[in-house]
Amino acid sequence: MTQRNGSALTVQGLNAFYGRAHILFDVSLSVGKGEVVALLGRNGAGKSTTLKSIVGLVADARGTRDLNGQDISSQPSYRIAQAGLGYVPEERRIFTNLTVMENLEVGRQPPRAGAPEWTPERLFELFPNLAEMRDRPGGRMSGGEQQMLTIARSLMGNPHTILLDEPSEGLAPVIVEQMARTITRLKSEGLTVLLSEQNLFFARALSDRAYVIEGGRIRYQGTMAELMADEAVRQAYLTV
């Protein structure tokens, strides 16, 4: 199994609540070091809530979350980020009044052992578009450029693991293809990636393994190849 190198991220028995509503039920998953794992599911299945719970953005989330052997279950989100977890939200949430360089500055953290080290120059190499608009306010960028900036911004924290929430959502097909190449490149740099997706075609090209979530519960786990072979699971939960 891929767990051989040890696990970068392990979630066990995660239950999340919004007010009285129970959103996640005993979600458990793990991502091995250097792996790309997809969390697949429909809208409202619980993907975003799972990722938000991991990064500490859900006030009422119970269960253990372990990052590189460190218990992050009850840590505030900034501590979790400082422990080396990057988060790219679905809504992008770039700082529209800040320039590209200033956006990157917000994400800056000291380099850490065992994770690729990023500088703005290295990131501009990865995202050449951004290099041409260093002083442009985030609000004046297109959706695709904003998505690139969100990723670049969280890489500035030199994470060893990164969570990407539906990176292909709302992007033109060509940009989606470009996004796929970027993620592959990040993997080759040694980064661990947990990716939430509805777009099975996109996830298939990148991921080693997949979990399928539905109604707040994990319904399936296996390698990407196994999932692609399992017509029944795909029909039941993914409706492609």
């Binding site: 953005l57 900034y78 980020a81 400082q82 700082f95 800040l98 917000v106 994400g107 911004r153």
Partner: peptide
């Protein structure tokens, strides 16, 4: 200053600033 930059970012989205490793409180 970096502090000012962070404050301007937090003006827009404090939660995201936290998720980027800044103690927004």
């Amino acid at each position: 200053t970096r502090w000012g930059n962070l404050v301007r970012a937090a003006t827009q989205d404090r939660e995201m600033v936290g998720a980027l490793g800044v103690n927004q409180a």
